[in-house]
Structures are given as C-alpha cells and as structure tokens.
Design a protein around this nucleic acid. Structure first.
Length: 877
RNA sequence: GGGUGCAUAGCUCAGCGGUAGAGCGCUUCCCUUACAAGGAAGAUGUCACAGGUUCGAUCCCUGUUGCGCCCACCA
C-alpha cells in the first residue's frame, strides 16, 4: 500500500490543541509498534510484483540482551529496509536468533551447578531438553527489546538456528561437503578450553599480553648439556626432542644424539629443524608435539612421538610426583624441582608474551592434540575471495576489503567439532569395524549392533554461515528463497568479518551454486563510550540502551546512533548526545504543533510557482535539494550524513527561518497565507517522511496527525521533483543576512530581544520589499511614526535600516566593531586581489574557482563600501 | 614481526586542493502567543611536527613523533 491509496481516516486526526507542548515517547512508541505489527506492515509477500529488498539480521545469541552495538546496527538495518519499503520495494528484514552453543550450554550448566548437579547427572538427552526449557523460559529477551527499539522485522519469518528447518539445512550441507571431500576428521593440535571442555577454533581464541616467566633449563649432562627456554615448563614432561637450527655451529655436534630429559628417565633426540631461529634465546628449542602447534609440526617432520601429559581439564597425567597437579601448579612445582637439581641456569625473569584465552570464558587456552572434524576451506575460500574480487559482492567501506582478502586468502582449515551437547550433532555414525557413515537428512542411520553416532556437535558458526539462505527455506526451493535470495545487504560489525561474513560467503556460494549470499557487505564500527573507550559487557562504562530508551525514547537513541554512523568508523556515544537527539524529536513535535495550529494542509496539488512567495519557493527548492542529497547519502551507506543533513535542514532552515517567516504571512491572511499553509504542510510532510526510517516513532505520530492518513511505514518515499529556484534561494539568503546583521547590532547595543524599536527600512532596489513585514517582525521593529529620528543607520546587503534608538546606545563600541570588520574586509580584498593578479592562478585554476574568488573580491569591496558608509553615519560619541 | 588506520575548537567527530565545520560544552541577553528539551547574539583552532609537489596544501607525497586496531606458531 502506498499513500496514493491512503485516505484520511475519520477519527484518527486529533485536534491540534490536544498535542501537549512536549513529546512523550513512552506514550506513543509501544502503541505504534503494536499497530505496525498488527497491520502486518513488516510482513513481506513472496508473491508480490515489487522488486525484493532483503536483509537478514545477524542473529543475536539466544542468551543475549540488547546492547548498544545491536541498537546501532539494528537502527541502520531498520533505516535501510524502511526506506526501501517506502520506495516501493518488497522489503524483508528477517529476524532470528543463534543457539550460541557454548554460551547457552554454559548458562544451563551454571543453573545446574546452582542445584549441585552437572550435565552428566542428567545425561545428554535430558540436558538438551533442559536447554530447550531454558530457551523457552529465559531465552530471547532480546526480541522484546528489538520491538522496543522499533525494529521493523518480519516476525512471521522469525528463525532459530536450531529449529527444524535450519537443522535440516545444516545436515544437508554437511552431507554435501562430506561427500565432496570438504569435511574430514583428523588428529591435530587444536585450541582447547579446559573450562568449557571443548575445542575452539582459531578465531575464538583471543590473545592478550600476559606476564609470564621465561625459564632456561639445562637438558642433558656434561658434553651433551644444552639449554632451552620455555614459558610453559610443565610441558617438558611431554618433550620428545630438542630442536636446533641445522646450521648452528654450537649444536652441530649434538644433532642426532640423545640427551637426558630432566625429571624423567627418558632420553630424547636432538633434531635439526629450519624452523628454529638460532638468534632467539639459546637457539635450542624443547619439542612437545602433543602440546604445541609448532612442536607438532616439527614432530611430524622428524617422526617424533607425541606424548600427551595433561587431561582435558589441564591436569597432569604423567605418573610421578606431578601427577594430579593442575597445569599451573605443575609449572611452579617443576621449576622448583629443576632448581633443586641446579638445572635452572637463568633465574626466572618477568616476561610478557601473548597468551591465548577462550573468548567465552577467558580461561587460558591449552593447545592439545586431539581428533576433530575439519572443513577444508581452500576451494571455498578461493570462491569467497573471487566473489569480492570480481565485483559480485561489494564491501563498504572499500578499504576494509583488504582485511577480508588477507583472511580468505590465508585461511586455515576450520575446526568445526565441539565437545558440547547443545548444538547440531555431527551426523556421522561409526560402525563396529571402524566404518564411518555420514547420514543425510532423509536417510536412516545404520542399524545393527555397535553403531554409534559421533558425540560432537558443530561449531555455532557452522549454522550461522547458512543463515542467508537457510532462513529462506533452503534446501527446499521455496517461494521465499526464489524471491529474496540473494539478500541485498549484510550489515554487521567489522569485528565478525572472519567469524561470520567470510563463512557465509563460502557456504552461500557453495550451497547456492555460485550465487552470493548478499550483494553488499556494509561494515560498521563498534560502539564506544563518549571518550572513545571500547564498551563491552565486562566494562563498567557499559550502558544499557534500554535505560536510555526509557529516559529519552527509542528515537533519541536511534538518531544518536545514526548520526554517529560514519562508514566503518567506531561510534562514540554519550548521554548528552542522546539528550540532544531527544531535543530534536521534541523540536519536530512542536514544529508540527505549530503547523497544525496554523492550519497547514497536506492535500491537493501545490500552488503554481507563480502563486508562491519567494520564501515558499526557497524552502521548496531547498527541500528538493535535500531529498537528492539524502538519497545519495543512503546509497553510499552514509547514515551520519543523511541524519545530519536532515537535522540541519529541519532545524536551521525550516524551523528557524521558514516557520518564523510564515508567521507574518499567516497573520496577514489572504491567498498568500493559503499558499504558505500548503507549502508548510508539504515541507513538513516530506521532512517527516525523510526522517521516518531513522526516527520512526515520532515521525509516525506526527505524520498521521498532520495528514490524517494511516501510516508513514507504508507511505511513499519523497522524490526530488527537480524544482529549484536559485533566485529565491539568493533572495532569502539576503533576508537572512540583513536580519542577522541587525540582530547583531541590537545585541551589541544591549537591546533586549523583545524590545520594540522604531525603524525605517529602505528596501528600494534590493528586491526585498516583499519581506519588509517579515523582517520587521523578526527584528522587532516598529513603524517609524511622526518625529522619527534615526540615530543609527545600517546599510546591509544594499538595504538601509534606520533605527531610532533615542540616543541611548554605545556608538563607540559599534565603531570599534565596525573598524574590526573593516580591517578584515580590507585584508580579504588584498588577498583576493593578489590572487586575481597571479598569472599562474588565472592560467591553471578552474573557472568556477576563479569566479568564486572574483565574487569574494567584489563582496569585500562591497563590505568596505558598506562599513565605510556605516562608520560615516555613526554619530560621534 | 607484518599489515592498517588515526592525529582538525575544551570533549567527540565531520570535511578534504581554492575564505576552517557540526553536536555537546562555554559567554551574554531573552519564558517574543510551536517549542526554556526553546530563541537570539557571541568567543574559541600555527587543521601533530619537518620537508616536498602546486599558482595555491588541513587536504596529495616523503619522513618524524604519538596513539589505535587487525593479523601472526617467536620457544
């Protein structure tokens, strides 16, 4: 539905007097959102003839609450879809949530722990059941908060990564990848979280500089003695070699020999490996293939055994004095024991180095040799890179594409198995004789004795990677999939390019036969506090957007976020800024109130240009310019620019000038007033439409009241009619200049703003005659009566304003100010004249620039003339 | 270690080869019949530093300094 078919509804329009002088968001937001949903405005129609416009929401964790980062991205996605809907697209913004494997399992395990139980007490099936219960009871709090924010999502299409359809998509693609040889099982060093008790992928590891201790330990005896350095002494129990660089003269004689490993009864070989940097430390490296990825690689090259010395909780399992100690306890115990033996050759020294932590629980990650499932990414990543390289997918802002390429071009295989219970269980069955069968979605698992299913589940991001098409019904060829895939924009933070964006690209291109999951990747920055500090859940500076929405309204939060949304850049936000946005909403409110009180009209055609005053033509000309500029900003994802343009157009031009000028016109009445009423209605109507995608609530409330129509959500987006009137724009600029100049004079003279002053305006030849009444009103100038005696005469922009100030003013101050202005004007004249005398400039500068400089020179000349006249007329003190 | 970005008004940030901008904050005056969540007027910047290119540089190039971010298997 568009507003062409929208008729004023009886009873919807309120009497203007009903509008209070302040906007109360709480009273309208909830009501309006309910109405939008009830009327189905956000429900997309797969059978419509309109062109589709699709955005799938980055699914928030089912455990999550709305934080400012969500609020930010949701505001932008909402603005995009709302605008496209108004432009006549079949706009779909598809919502949903992610099952968030580790996070959710942790929540429920915590719950069980409070009851003194563990998941093992329940068993797998009951535990998973319990997680579903948890989801029903506590999950999805964020969905309500999204309504609060005004997210225009299609709730009828809400999805969950663990729901039936999406699970089927997961099984389908797993099977296909498996059959194509792109999923395999292998034993490797992985990142293990000893608290979550699962493998995690490389990007789920967050590195931070930790203070550690680098100890140097003497291995071997006598001639064979050799010193290695380590920060993880406990891993020496699993050493199966010492490696040195093959060219290193210091150790050449030892290569191939075996040396005694302290604290054990084992001897280990000395091997030569190019990987060792002879410059670093002692040039000799202990090799623990089971507990370090580098060492694992060295072990491979030299056929070394791997000795696992810890269990999954990081507890030492090697028989002997250290057995049963936690890895950190074992570290100090072992260093102590070595010291007693005199094997610590360099005392411990502080050493900060980069240590990996589990992104979910901050526990120090333990590299661990283990059997896991992997996606072979090479062919998939190649496609994902090419799709951007060949322009099928565009990244905004473009400079972030380098980061994308760096990743996809150097991607390691993806570890997709997790030792959890909550998630998509890997559909592979093991037979009694070591057989391995991958079971597709429509297949029965093998029956018979001894067949068991793989117990691991898939990484949460595996199902997230399918989101742009699994949510539309894939693998079925549904009408939704046909209509809405590929999606148009993926808008998300640049921090999950690797986690999510690249993987959606890989799986989307693979599953949809080369059709990209989205045309555009719009990357946003992160929300920060008012001083640019990162906001995160763990930081005390973190703000709950709900609090701000309660205090200032959802629109205020949205507008603030949109105004901060420079492409790819981080967004600082502080409460002051939300207040400023709230003030803007209130300003809109009162401007509309003014329009209603003065009978602004929105129906019927605009009067012909000939029937319009200069200010009418000026504001319409500006309106159309702004429409074009806002469109351009949107097309380039420049939300800050679009918001800022509208903010300043509405406030600085429409409200501060057009509305003020119109007061005089309305007071005079007649056809001119009727025309202005229509223009004011038009400008307000269009401005509210333009603002609606960003601040949907207040604009809806005002627009429906102003127009009596059903809803702005389904109204038409304004189109630039092409109307421009440079002459009117120039004329109004002059009016503003004169008014501002005289106001300045008044202020300088200490006149009260409301004080009426007798004045005579000489406007002959200025073209401003039509504006005399308006200027008098804006300047509080009374007509010059009998006995008028001009004590100040100010020529401004060709006009002359003579004021009778009864001699009660400080002309010395005015003289001083004018002399300052004169000096500035003379300097300007000198500069511009010099420039215009410069042959190089005249020869090389483009004509418009030269023209501009000439204009400046002429203006300076005129200013000098004016100021001189003004000075001459100024009475001597 | 490798990339990459930033340094502009008190704060947070736009701008980007041709007279320095916004919001907030600040100063003064004003409850002027839409709005004090408001109005009017005003102050505030060697656009980090040093060179270079150009008729002209906050903007382009080089270097320096200081921050930030991303990636990386430095024992």
């Amino acid at each position: 539905m568009t507003d062409n078919t929208q008729q004023p509804e009886a009873g919807l329009q309120r009497a203007p007097a009903d509008l209070p002088t302040q906007y109360a968001p709480a009273e309208v937001e909830g009501k309006l959102y309910e109405r939008w949903v009830e009327r189905g405005y956000f429900e997309a129609d797969a059978t419509s003839d309109k062109p589709p416009y699709t955005i799938v929401i980055p699914p928030p964790n089912v455990t999550g609450a709305l934080h400012l980062g969500h609020a930010f991205q949701h505001t932008l996605m909402d603005a995009l879809t709302r605008r496209k809907r108004m432009q006549g697209y079949e706009a779909l913004w598809l919502p949903g949530m992610d099952h968030a494997g580790i996070a959710t399992q942790n929540k429920v395990e915590q719950q069980l722990a409070d009851e003194g139980r563990s998941r093992h007490d329940l068993g797998r099936e009951a535990f998973v059941e319990r997680v579903w219960q948890w989801k029903d009871e506590f999950g999805g709090r964020i969905l309500g908060q999204m309504r609060r924010l005004g997210d225009g999502v299609d709730w009828s299409r809400e999805r969950f990564t663990m729901d039936e359809g999406l699970s089927r998509a997961v099984l389908t693609i797993f099977k296909r990848l498996y059959d194509d040889g792109l999923i395999y099982r292998a034993e490797r060093i992985i990142n293990w979280c000893p608290r979550c008790l699962t493998a995690i992928s490389d990007i789920e590891v967050e590195y931070q500089e930790d203070a550690g201790e680098l100890v140097s330990i003497a291995y071997g005896e006598g001639e064979d003695r050799l010193v290695v350095a380590t920060t993880r002494a406990e891993t020496m129990l699993g050493d199966t070699a010492v490696a040195v660089h093959p060219e290193d003269e210091r150790y050449r004689h030892l290569i191939g020999s075996r040396i005694k490993l302290p604290l054990t009864d084992r001897t280990i070989p000395v091997v030569a490996d190019e990987h060792v940097d002879p410059e670093f430390g002692t040039g000799a490296v202990k090799v623990t293939p089971a507990h370090d990825p580098n060492d694992f690689a060295i072990g491979r090259r030299h056929d070394l055994p791997s000795l696992t010395v810890m269990d999954e909780r990081g507890v030492i399992t090697v028989h002997g004095p250290f057995e049963g100690l936690d890895r950190f306890e074992a570290r100090s115990a072992i260093v102590g024991a070595l010291r007693e033996q005199g094997r610590i050759v360099a005392e411990k020294r502080p050493y900060t180095h980069s240590v990996g932590h589990c992104s979910r629980c901050r526990t120090t990650v333990e590299p661990r040799l283990s059997m896991q499932w992997w996606v072979k990414v090479e062919p998939l990543a190649k496609e994902a890179g090419d799709a951007v390289r060949d322009g099928r997918v565009t990244i905004h802002p473009a400079d972030l594409s380098k980061r994308y390429f760096d990743w996809v071009d150097n991607m390691h295989d993806w570890c997709i198995s997790r030792q959890l219970w909550w998630g998509h269980r890997i559909p592979v069955w093991y037979g009694p004789d070591g057989e391995m069968v991958c079971v597709g979605p429509d297949e029965e698992p093998p029956s018979g004795e001894g067949w068991t299913q793989e117990s691991d589940v898939l990484d949460t991001w595996f199902s997230s990677a399918l989101w742009p098409f699994s949510t539309l019904g894939w693998p079925e060829q549904t009408p939704d999939l046909k209509k809405f895939y590929s999606t148009d924009v993926l808008l998300t933070g640049h921090d999950i390019i690797f986690f999510w964006v690249a993987r959606m690209m890989m799986f989307g291109l693979y599953a949809m036969d080369g059709r990209q999951p989205f045309h555009t990747i719009a990357l946003t920055g992160l929300v920060r506090d008012e001083h640019g500090k990162k906001m995160s859940k763990s930081n005390p500076n973190s703000v709950d957007p709900l609090d701000w929405m309660d205090a200032y309204g959802a629109d205020a939060v949205r507008f603030t976020l949109a105004r901060g949304a420079n492409p790819g850049a981080d967004v600082p936000i502080g409460e002051d800024w939300v207040q400023a946005s709230r003030n803007f909403a209130n300003k809109l409110w009162n401007a509309t109130r003014f329009a209603l009180l003065n009978g602004a009209t929105v129906d019927g055609p605009l009067p012909e240009a000939g029937a319009l005053s200069a200010s009418d033509r000026w504001i319409l000309s500006r309106l159309n310019t702004v429409i074009a500029e806002v469109d351009a900003a949107y097309e380039d994802y420049q939300f800050a620019k679009a918001s800022d343009l509208l903010f300043h157009f509405a406030w600085d031009e429409v409200f501060d000038w057009y509305v003020e000028l119109s007061k005089t016109v309305f007071a005079a009445g007649g056809p001119a007033a009727d025309a202005s009423r229509r223009v004011l209605g038009e400008v307000l109507d269009r401005t509210l439409r333009l603002l609606h995608p960003i601040v949907p609530f207040v604009t809806e409330e005002l627009w429906t009241t102003l127009t009596g129509r059903e809803s702005l959500v389904v109204a038409d987006w304004p189109v630039d009619t092409g109307f421009r009137d440079a002459a009117a724009e120039g004329e109004l600029a002059t009016v503003q200049k004169v008014v501002t100049e005289i106001r300045r004079f008044r202020a300088d003279q200490g006149l009260q703003p409301g004080q009426r002053v007798p004045a005579r305006l000489e406007l002959d030849g200025t073209g401003l005659a039509d504006h005399e009444e308006a200027m008098r009103s804006l300047l509080r100038l009374q007509p010059a009566g009998d006995g008028f005696e001009a004590s100040a005469t100010l020529p401004v922009a060709g006009a002359v304003v003579a004021l009778d100030l009864s001699g009660a003013i400080d002309f010395a101050a005015e003289r001083k100010r004018l002399e300052k202005d004169l000096a500035a004007a003379e300097k300007e004249l000198k500069q511009t004249t010099a420039k215009l005398g410069n042959e190089g400039f005249l020869a090389k500068a483009p004509e418009p620039v030269v023209e501009k400089i000439r204009g400046r020179r002429d203006a300076a000349e005129a200013d000098i003339q004016r100021i001189t006249t003004q000075l001459d007329r100024l009475p001597r003190a």
